[in-house]
Design a protein around this nucleic acid. Structure first.
Length: 399
RNA sequence: GGGGGGAUGCCCGAGUGGUUAAAGGGGACGGGCUGUAAACCCGUUGGCUCUGCCUACGCAGGUUCGAAUCCUGCUCCCCCCA
Protein backbone atom coordinates (compact mmCIF):
# COMPACT_ATOMS: atom_id res chain seq x y z
CA UNK A 1 0.00 0.00 0.00
CA UNK A 2 2.83 2.36 0.70
CA UNK A 3 3.88 3.45 -2.70
CA UNK A 4 6.00 6.29 -1.43
CA UNK A 5 9.18 6.40 -3.38
CA UNK A 6 12.46 6.60 -1.61
CA UNK A 7 14.94 9.29 -2.60
CA UNK A 8 13.50 12.44 -1.07
CA UNK A 9 15.93 14.65 -2.94
CA UNK A 10 14.69 13.61 -6.35
CA UNK A 11 11.08 13.88 -5.19
CA UNK A 12 11.71 17.41 -3.99
CA UNK A 13 13.32 18.33 -7.27
CA UNK A 14 10.40 16.89 -9.20
CA UNK A 15 7.90 18.78 -7.07
CA UNK A 16 9.75 22.08 -7.39
CA UNK A 17 8.59 22.68 -10.93
CA UNK A 18 6.31 25.72 -11.26
CA UNK A 19 6.47 26.43 -7.56
CA UNK A 20 6.63 30.11 -6.68
CA UNK A 21 7.97 29.59 -3.17
CA UNK A 22 8.83 26.61 -1.01
CA UNK A 23 8.87 27.66 2.63
CA UNK A 24 10.86 27.31 4.71
CA UNK A 25 13.88 26.57 2.56
CA UNK A 26 14.47 22.84 2.54
CA UNK A 27 11.29 22.27 4.51
CA UNK A 28 9.65 20.06 1.95
CA UNK A 29 12.71 17.93 1.56
CA UNK A 30 12.91 17.36 5.31
CA UNK A 31 9.27 16.30 5.40
CA UNK A 32 9.92 13.94 2.52
CA UNK A 33 12.86 12.42 4.39
CA UNK A 34 10.77 11.99 7.51
CA UNK A 35 8.05 10.33 5.47
CA UNK A 36 10.49 7.83 4.07
CA UNK A 37 11.88 7.10 7.54
CA UNK A 38 8.43 6.66 8.99
CA UNK A 39 7.34 4.64 5.99
CA UNK A 40 4.20 6.70 5.48
CA UNK A 41 2.95 9.09 2.80
CA UNK A 42 2.76 12.81 3.44
CA UNK A 43 -0.57 14.44 4.08
CA UNK A 44 -0.88 17.29 1.59
CA UNK A 45 -3.59 19.82 2.37
CA UNK A 46 -5.57 22.12 0.12
CA UNK A 47 -8.39 24.25 1.43
CA UNK A 48 -11.21 25.15 -0.87
CA UNK A 49 -14.04 27.59 -0.86
CA UNK A 50 -17.42 25.93 -1.37
CA UNK A 51 -19.13 29.15 -2.41
CA UNK A 52 -17.83 28.82 -5.98
CA UNK A 53 -18.08 25.17 -6.96
CA UNK A 54 -16.93 25.42 -10.55
CA UNK A 55 -13.28 24.74 -11.14
CA UNK A 56 -11.46 26.80 -13.72
CA UNK A 57 -7.99 26.61 -15.19
CA UNK A 58 -6.63 28.76 -12.38
CA UNK A 59 -7.51 26.06 -9.86
CA UNK A 60 -5.86 23.41 -11.96
CA UNK A 61 -2.42 24.89 -11.34
CA UNK A 62 -2.62 23.90 -7.69
CA UNK A 63 -4.54 20.72 -8.41
CA UNK A 64 -1.85 19.66 -10.83
CA UNK A 65 0.73 20.00 -8.07
CA UNK A 66 -1.46 17.88 -5.82
CA UNK A 67 -1.61 15.33 -8.57
CA UNK A 68 2.15 15.20 -8.68
CA UNK A 69 2.24 14.48 -4.95
CA UNK A 70 -0.22 11.69 -5.54
CA UNK A 71 1.91 10.31 -8.33
CA UNK A 72 4.68 9.98 -5.77
CA UNK A 73 2.36 8.11 -3.44
CA UNK A 74 1.36 10.93 -1.11
CA UNK A 75 -2.09 11.58 0.20
CA UNK A 76 -4.15 14.62 -0.69
CA UNK A 77 -6.50 16.10 1.88
CA UNK A 78 -9.07 18.46 0.43
CA UNK A 79 -10.79 20.58 3.01
CA UNK A 80 -14.15 22.09 2.28
CA UNK A 81 -14.61 25.31 4.22
CA UNK A 82 -18.23 24.56 4.95
CA UNK A 83 -18.20 26.10 8.40
CA UNK A 84 -16.67 29.34 7.23
CA UNK A 85 -19.01 29.50 4.25
CA UNK A 86 -21.97 29.12 6.53
CA UNK A 87 -20.88 32.17 8.46
CA UNK A 88 -20.36 34.28 5.34
CA UNK A 89 -17.07 35.93 4.63
CA UNK A 90 -17.17 39.73 4.64
CA UNK A 91 -13.69 40.20 3.24
CA UNK A 92 -12.92 42.81 0.69
CA UNK A 93 -15.66 45.36 0.49
CA UNK A 94 -18.54 45.77 2.82
CA UNK A 95 -20.67 43.39 0.83
CA UNK A 96 -21.28 40.53 3.19
CA UNK A 97 -21.40 37.33 1.27
CA UNK A 98 -24.62 35.46 1.72
CA UNK A 99 -24.24 32.60 4.11
CA UNK A 100 -24.88 29.31 2.36
CA UNK A 101 -27.12 26.60 3.66
CA UNK A 102 -25.73 23.20 4.58
CA UNK A 103 -27.43 21.69 1.53
CA UNK A 104 -25.94 24.20 -0.89
CA UNK A 105 -22.51 23.65 0.56
CA UNK A 106 -22.80 19.89 0.27
CA UNK A 107 -23.94 20.19 -3.33
CA UNK A 108 -21.13 22.60 -4.17
CA UNK A 109 -18.58 20.34 -2.54
CA UNK A 110 -19.78 17.39 -4.63
CA UNK A 111 -19.54 19.45 -7.81
CA UNK A 112 -16.11 20.66 -6.88
CA UNK A 113 -14.92 17.17 -6.07
CA UNK A 114 -16.23 15.75 -9.32
CA UNK A 115 -14.51 18.47 -11.32
CA UNK A 116 -11.30 18.20 -9.31
CA UNK A 117 -11.09 14.54 -10.29
CA UNK A 118 -10.37 15.70 -13.80
CA UNK A 119 -6.95 16.57 -12.45
CA UNK A 120 -6.34 14.64 -9.26
CA UNK A 121 -6.81 10.96 -8.58
CA UNK A 122 -9.79 9.69 -6.64
CA UNK A 123 -7.91 6.64 -5.41
CA UNK A 124 -9.06 6.33 -1.77
CA UNK A 125 -5.49 5.62 -0.69
CA UNK A 126 -4.36 8.91 -2.13
CA UNK A 127 -7.28 11.16 -1.37
CA UNK A 128 -9.64 12.26 1.35
CA UNK A 129 -12.25 14.97 1.61
CA UNK A 130 -13.00 16.69 4.88
CA UNK A 131 -15.39 19.43 6.00
CA UNK A 132 -14.02 21.88 8.52
CA UNK A 133 -17.33 22.11 10.34
CA UNK A 134 -16.21 18.80 11.78
CA UNK A 135 -13.75 20.59 14.07
CA UNK A 136 -14.49 24.32 13.83
CA UNK A 137 -17.88 23.95 15.47
CA UNK A 138 -15.98 24.33 18.70
CA UNK A 139 -16.68 25.61 22.17
CA UNK A 140 -15.91 29.17 23.16
CA UNK A 141 -13.19 27.80 25.37
CA UNK A 142 -11.58 26.06 22.41
CA UNK A 143 -11.86 29.24 20.38
CA UNK A 144 -10.07 31.12 23.15
CA UNK A 145 -7.28 28.60 22.88
CA UNK A 146 -7.04 29.21 19.15
CA UNK A 147 -7.28 32.99 19.51
CA UNK A 148 -4.39 32.97 21.98
CA UNK A 149 -2.01 31.64 19.34
CA UNK A 150 -1.87 34.79 17.29
CA UNK A 151 -1.43 38.49 17.94
CA UNK A 152 -3.09 41.39 16.19
CA UNK A 153 0.33 42.62 15.10
CA UNK A 154 0.91 39.31 13.35
CA UNK A 155 -2.37 39.59 11.51
CA UNK A 156 -1.72 43.18 10.55
CA UNK A 157 1.42 41.95 8.89
CA UNK A 158 -0.70 40.58 6.13
CA UNK A 159 -0.50 43.03 3.30
CA UNK A 160 -4.16 43.50 2.53
CA UNK A 161 -5.04 43.94 6.21
CA UNK A 162 -2.19 46.41 6.63
CA UNK A 163 -3.27 48.40 3.60
CA UNK A 164 -6.87 48.56 4.63
CA UNK A 165 -6.01 49.37 8.21
CA UNK A 166 -3.81 52.24 7.13
CA UNK A 167 -6.48 53.50 4.77
CA UNK A 168 -9.03 53.45 7.55
CA UNK A 169 -11.04 50.84 5.66
CA UNK A 170 -13.17 48.41 7.61
CA UNK A 171 -11.79 45.10 8.80
CA UNK A 172 -14.15 42.90 10.72
CA UNK A 173 -13.00 40.71 13.56
CA UNK A 174 -14.48 37.80 11.67
CA UNK A 175 -12.08 38.46 8.83
CA UNK A 176 -9.19 38.46 11.24
CA UNK A 177 -10.38 35.12 12.48
CA UNK A 178 -10.30 33.48 9.06
CA UNK A 179 -6.55 32.91 8.92
CA UNK A 180 -6.76 31.35 12.37
CA UNK A 181 -9.49 28.99 11.32
CA UNK A 182 -7.62 28.02 8.21
CA UNK A 183 -4.53 27.42 10.29
CA UNK A 184 -6.48 25.27 12.69
CA UNK A 185 -7.58 23.14 9.75
CA UNK A 186 -3.93 22.19 9.38
CA UNK A 187 -3.86 21.15 13.02
CA UNK A 188 -7.04 19.13 12.67
CA UNK A 189 -5.87 17.13 9.67
CA UNK A 190 -2.24 17.01 10.78
CA UNK A 191 -1.05 18.46 7.49
CA UNK A 192 2.56 17.82 6.49
CA UNK A 193 2.39 20.11 3.51
CA UNK A 194 -0.05 22.80 2.47
CA UNK A 195 -0.46 24.19 -1.02
CA UNK A 196 -2.02 27.41 -2.20
CA UNK A 197 -1.65 30.36 -4.52
CA UNK A 198 0.95 32.99 -3.75
CA UNK A 199 -1.88 35.16 -2.47
CA UNK A 200 -2.31 32.63 0.32
CA UNK A 201 1.27 32.80 1.54
CA UNK A 202 0.41 34.57 4.77
CA UNK A 203 -2.35 32.16 5.68
CA UNK A 204 -0.27 29.12 4.87
CA UNK A 205 2.61 30.35 6.99
CA UNK A 206 0.33 31.25 9.86
CA UNK A 207 -0.80 27.65 9.74
CA UNK A 208 2.75 26.68 10.71
CA UNK A 209 2.67 28.93 13.76
CA UNK A 210 -0.63 27.56 14.86
CA UNK A 211 0.51 23.98 14.45
CA UNK A 212 3.51 24.76 16.62
CA UNK A 213 1.25 26.17 19.33
CA UNK A 214 -0.64 22.91 19.29
CA UNK A 215 2.55 20.94 19.61
CA UNK A 216 2.55 19.65 16.05
CA UNK A 217 5.36 19.64 13.54
CA UNK A 218 5.03 22.60 11.20
CA UNK A 219 3.82 22.00 7.69
CA UNK A 220 5.94 22.73 4.67
CA UNK A 221 4.39 25.38 2.48
CA UNK A 222 4.38 25.44 -1.30
CA UNK A 223 2.90 28.41 -3.10
CA UNK A 224 2.06 28.36 -6.76
CA UNK A 225 1.89 31.28 -9.17
CA UNK A 226 -1.47 32.81 -9.88
CA UNK A 227 -2.75 32.10 -13.36
CA UNK A 228 -3.89 35.23 -15.15
CA UNK A 229 -7.37 35.09 -16.67
CA UNK A 230 -8.15 35.41 -20.34
CA UNK A 231 -7.59 39.16 -20.07
CA UNK A 232 -3.97 38.24 -19.44
CA UNK A 233 -3.65 40.49 -16.42
CA UNK A 234 -5.97 39.82 -13.54
CA UNK A 235 -6.13 36.66 -11.53
CA UNK A 236 -8.47 34.17 -13.12
CA UNK A 237 -11.69 34.22 -11.18
CA UNK A 238 -15.34 33.70 -11.72
CA UNK A 239 -16.28 37.10 -10.35
CA UNK A 240 -13.99 38.80 -12.86
CA UNK A 241 -15.57 36.76 -15.62
CA UNK A 242 -12.16 35.99 -17.11
CA UNK A 243 -12.16 32.27 -16.47
CA UNK A 244 -12.23 29.09 -18.49
CA UNK A 245 -14.04 26.35 -16.62
CA UNK A 246 -12.78 22.78 -16.82
CA UNK A 247 -16.24 21.61 -17.87
CA UNK A 248 -16.73 24.26 -20.54
CA UNK A 249 -17.55 23.27 -24.08
CA UNK A 250 -14.53 22.53 -26.26
CA UNK A 251 -15.34 25.27 -28.75
CA UNK A 252 -15.74 27.86 -26.03
CA UNK A 253 -12.49 26.75 -24.37
CA UNK A 254 -10.70 27.03 -27.67
CA UNK A 255 -12.07 30.44 -28.59
CA UNK A 256 -11.43 31.88 -25.15
CA UNK A 257 -7.85 30.68 -25.18
CA UNK A 258 -7.33 32.32 -28.55
CA UNK A 259 -8.40 35.62 -27.03
CA UNK A 260 -5.55 35.47 -24.54
CA UNK A 261 -3.13 38.36 -25.02
CA UNK A 262 0.18 37.21 -26.43
CA UNK A 263 2.10 38.43 -23.40
CA UNK A 264 0.39 35.90 -21.16
CA UNK A 265 1.02 32.93 -23.42
CA UNK A 266 4.32 31.87 -21.93
CA UNK A 267 2.81 31.85 -18.46
CA UNK A 268 -0.09 29.72 -19.60
CA UNK A 269 2.19 27.26 -21.32
CA UNK A 270 4.20 26.92 -18.15
CA UNK A 271 1.47 26.80 -15.55
CA UNK A 272 -1.00 24.70 -17.40
CA UNK A 273 1.69 22.11 -18.01
CA UNK A 274 0.39 21.44 -21.45
CA UNK A 275 3.80 21.53 -23.06
CA UNK A 276 7.27 22.10 -21.76
CA UNK A 277 7.40 25.63 -23.14
CA UNK A 278 6.04 27.91 -25.78
CA UNK A 279 7.31 26.63 -29.09
CA UNK A 280 9.50 28.90 -31.15
CA UNK A 281 6.87 29.59 -33.74
CA UNK A 282 4.77 32.60 -34.66
CA UNK A 283 2.50 33.71 -31.80
CA UNK A 284 -0.65 32.90 -33.68
CA UNK A 285 0.41 29.30 -34.20
CA UNK A 286 1.74 29.04 -30.68
CA UNK A 287 -1.60 30.16 -29.35
CA UNK A 288 -3.39 27.62 -31.49
CA UNK A 289 -1.12 24.94 -30.09
CA UNK A 290 -1.92 26.15 -26.60
CA UNK A 291 -5.64 26.15 -27.22
CA UNK A 292 -5.50 22.69 -28.75
CA UNK A 293 -3.51 21.34 -25.83
CA UNK A 294 -5.88 22.78 -23.26
CA UNK A 295 -8.96 21.42 -24.95
CA UNK A 296 -7.28 18.04 -25.45
CA UNK A 297 -6.43 17.86 -21.80
CA UNK A 298 -10.04 18.15 -20.71
CA UNK A 299 -11.97 16.84 -23.68
CA UNK A 300 -9.57 14.71 -25.72
CA UNK A 301 -7.83 15.11 -29.06
CA UNK A 302 -10.90 14.55 -31.19
CA UNK A 303 -12.87 17.29 -29.51
CA UNK A 304 -9.87 19.60 -29.71
CA UNK A 305 -9.58 19.15 -33.46
CA UNK A 306 -13.29 19.78 -33.86
CA UNK A 307 -13.07 22.89 -31.72
CA UNK A 308 -10.25 24.23 -33.82
CA UNK A 309 -12.23 23.67 -37.00
CA UNK A 310 -15.26 25.40 -35.57
CA UNK A 311 -13.05 28.28 -34.51
CA UNK A 312 -11.65 28.67 -38.00
CA UNK A 313 -15.06 28.66 -39.52
CA UNK A 314 -16.44 31.36 -37.26
CA UNK A 315 -13.53 33.66 -36.62
CA UNK A 316 -11.19 33.17 -39.54
CA UNK A 317 -13.65 32.58 -42.34
CA UNK A 318 -16.43 34.56 -40.64
CA UNK A 319 -18.78 31.71 -41.34
CA UNK A 320 -21.43 29.93 -39.39
CA UNK A 321 -20.68 27.11 -36.95
CA UNK A 322 -21.79 23.54 -37.65
CA UNK A 323 -24.07 23.35 -34.72
CA UNK A 324 -26.51 26.20 -34.38
CA UNK A 325 -29.27 26.04 -31.83
CA UNK A 326 -32.79 26.57 -33.10
CA UNK A 327 -35.01 29.27 -31.70
CA UNK A 328 -38.71 29.82 -32.12
CA UNK A 329 -39.83 33.34 -32.81
CA UNK A 330 -43.28 34.71 -33.44
CA UNK A 331 -44.72 36.59 -36.35
CA UNK A 332 -47.99 38.36 -36.86
CA UNK A 333 -49.62 38.55 -40.26
CA UNK A 334 -46.45 37.18 -41.78
CA UNK A 335 -44.36 40.03 -40.43
CA UNK A 336 -41.60 39.53 -37.91
CA UNK A 337 -40.73 42.39 -35.60
CA UNK A 338 -36.95 42.05 -35.49
CA UNK A 339 -36.22 43.45 -31.99
CA UNK A 340 -38.86 41.14 -30.56
CA UNK A 341 -37.53 38.15 -32.47
CA UNK A 342 -33.96 38.78 -31.35
CA UNK A 343 -35.22 39.09 -27.83
CA UNK A 344 -36.93 35.73 -28.07
CA UNK A 345 -34.03 34.02 -29.77
CA UNK A 346 -31.09 35.38 -27.80
CA UNK A 347 -32.59 36.48 -24.52
CA UNK A 348 -31.61 40.11 -24.95
CA UNK A 349 -33.93 43.03 -24.27
CA UNK A 350 -35.64 44.61 -27.24
CA UNK A 351 -33.82 47.84 -26.59
CA UNK A 352 -30.52 46.03 -26.71
CA UNK A 353 -31.57 44.30 -29.91
CA UNK A 354 -32.42 47.66 -31.45
CA UNK A 355 -29.03 49.03 -30.51
CA UNK A 356 -27.22 46.06 -32.04
CA UNK A 357 -29.30 46.42 -35.14
CA UNK A 358 -28.47 50.11 -35.38
CA UNK A 359 -24.78 49.29 -35.08
CA UNK A 360 -24.79 46.70 -37.80
CA UNK A 361 -24.34 43.86 -35.38
CA UNK A 362 -27.11 41.68 -36.73
CA UNK A 363 -26.56 39.40 -39.71
CA UNK A 364 -28.94 37.15 -41.55
CA UNK A 365 -27.27 34.42 -43.55
CA UNK A 366 -24.05 36.37 -43.32
CA UNK A 367 -25.49 39.65 -44.57
CA UNK A 368 -25.92 42.60 -42.21
CA UNK A 369 -29.47 43.61 -41.58
CA UNK A 370 -30.01 47.32 -42.21
CA UNK A 371 -30.69 49.51 -39.22
CA UNK A 372 -34.13 50.43 -40.44
CA UNK A 373 -35.28 46.90 -41.08
CA UNK A 374 -37.36 46.66 -37.95
CA UNK A 375 -40.11 44.61 -39.53
CA UNK A 376 -39.38 41.98 -42.13
CA UNK A 377 -41.45 39.33 -43.89
CA UNK A 378 -41.24 35.91 -42.23
CA UNK A 379 -39.67 34.34 -45.30
CA UNK A 380 -36.66 36.55 -44.80
CA UNK A 381 -35.89 34.92 -41.44
CA UNK A 382 -37.56 31.55 -41.33
CA UNK A 383 -34.94 28.81 -41.34
CA UNK A 384 -32.11 31.32 -41.58
CA UNK A 385 -29.12 31.55 -39.28
CA UNK A 386 -29.07 34.86 -37.51
CA UNK A 387 -25.84 36.14 -36.05
CA UNK A 388 -25.81 38.60 -33.17
CA UNK A 389 -22.47 40.28 -32.77
CA UNK A 390 -19.45 38.14 -33.38
CA UNK A 391 -20.28 34.91 -31.73
CA UNK A 392 -23.94 34.42 -31.02
CA UNK A 393 -25.84 32.33 -33.54
CA UNK A 394 -29.40 31.00 -33.76
CA UNK A 395 -31.36 29.33 -36.50
CA UNK A 396 -34.79 30.94 -36.44
CA UNK A 397 -38.04 29.10 -36.82
CA UNK A 398 -40.85 31.51 -37.34
CA UNK A 399 -44.14 30.32 -35.96
C1' G B 1 -21.85 56.85 25.49
C1' G B 2 -20.37 61.22 22.31
C1' G B 3 -19.02 63.41 17.51
C1' G B 4 -18.62 63.12 12.25
C1' G B 5 -19.26 60.93 7.30
C1' G B 6 -21.89 58.00 3.78
C1' A B 7 -25.86 55.04 0.73
C1' U B 8 -26.17 57.31 -7.17
C1' G B 9 -26.67 53.24 -13.12
C1' C B 10 -22.65 46.31 -13.91
C1' C B 11 -18.36 48.54 -10.72
C1' C B 12 -15.83 53.05 -9.14
C1' G B 13 -17.34 57.93 -8.92
C1' A B 14 -19.29 63.40 -10.07
C1' G B 15 -23.62 65.93 -9.25
C1' U B 16 -26.56 69.71 -3.86
C1' G B 17 -33.85 72.58 -6.83
C1' G B 18 -35.12 72.73 -13.40
C1' U B 19 -31.03 72.34 -19.89
C1' U B 20 -29.97 64.98 -15.61
C1' A B 21 -31.59 58.58 -18.13
C1' A B 22 -27.84 61.51 -14.69
C1' A B 23 -20.29 64.10 -15.96
C1' G B 24 -15.79 61.12 -15.88
C1' G B 25 -13.28 56.42 -15.56
C1' G B 26 -13.37 51.00 -15.62
C1' G B 27 -15.71 46.83 -17.45
C1' A B 28 -18.89 44.89 -21.09
C1' C B 29 -21.02 45.00 -25.88
C1' G B 30 -21.18 46.56 -31.35
C1' G B 31 -18.42 48.35 -35.76
C1' G B 32 -13.47 49.25 -38.04
C1' C B 33 -8.43 47.49 -38.09
C1' U B 34 -5.98 42.56 -37.12
C1' G B 35 -3.13 37.19 -36.51
C1' U B 36 -7.70 34.95 -33.32
C1' A B 37 -5.41 38.79 -29.83
C1' A B 38 -3.23 43.27 -27.88
C1' A B 39 -2.85 48.47 -29.13
C1' C B 40 -5.68 52.01 -31.70
C1' C B 41 -10.23 54.59 -33.83
C1' C B 42 -15.63 55.16 -33.75
C1' G B 43 -20.11 53.96 -31.27
C1' U B 44 -23.40 51.78 -27.48
C1' U B 45 -24.21 50.57 -22.38
C1' G B 46 -32.56 51.10 -17.73
C1' G B 47 -37.14 49.46 -20.18
C1' C B 48 -40.99 49.88 -23.85
C1' U B 49 -46.06 49.68 -28.23
C1' C B 50 -39.19 54.24 -29.58
C1' U B 51 -38.91 61.31 -33.40
C1' G B 52 -42.40 59.63 -27.94
C1' C B 53 -43.53 57.35 -23.24
C1' C B 54 -42.45 54.90 -18.57
C1' U B 55 -39.28 53.71 -14.56
C1' A B 56 -34.73 55.17 -11.89
C1' C B 57 -30.16 58.11 -7.66
C1' G B 58 -31.00 53.16 0.23
C1' C B 59 -36.71 52.83 2.12
C1' A B 60 -41.35 55.63 3.35
C1' G B 61 -43.61 60.17 3.51
C1' G B 62 -43.54 65.71 2.87
C1' U B 63 -42.33 70.83 0.74
C1' U B 64 -42.38 72.74 -4.45
C1' C B 65 -45.05 74.36 -10.78
C1' G B 66 -40.64 71.13 -10.61
C1' A B 67 -36.28 67.08 -6.22
C1' A B 68 -30.84 62.51 -6.97
C1' U B 69 -30.53 67.50 -5.01
C1' C B 70 -34.65 70.71 0.54
C1' C B 71 -37.50 68.65 5.16
C1' U B 72 -39.18 64.41 8.47
C1' G B 73 -38.96 59.41 9.90
C1' C B 74 -36.75 54.61 9.02
C1' U B 75 -32.96 50.93 7.50
C1' C B 76 -28.03 49.86 6.63
C1' C B 77 -22.74 51.09 6.49
C1' C B 78 -18.14 53.58 7.85
C1' C B 79 -14.61 56.67 10.67
C1' C B 80 -12.99 59.23 15.11
C1' C B 81 -13.14 60.19 20.52
C1' A B 82 -14.35 57.74 25.15
Amino acid sequence: MTRVRANPASQAAFLARNVADALPAGGLERRLEQAVEAGRPLRVKLGLDPTAPDIHLGHTVVLQKLREFQDLGHRVVLIVGDYTARVGDPSGRSETRPALSAEEIAANARTYERQAFRVISDDPDLYELRFNGEWLDMSMEALFGLARTTTVAQLLDREDFATRYRAGAPISVLELLYPLMQGYDSVAVRADVELGGTDQTFNLLLGRDIQRHYGQPEQAVLTLPILPGIDGVEKMSKTKGNQIGVTEEPSSMFAKTMRLPDEAMATWFELLAVEPSAPEIPPRDAKRALARAIVSRFHGDVAAAAAEQAFDRIFVEHGVPDEVADADVSASDGIVHVPAALGEAFGVSRSEARRLLAQGGVRVAGQPLAADELDVPRARLDGEVVQLGRRRFRRLRVR
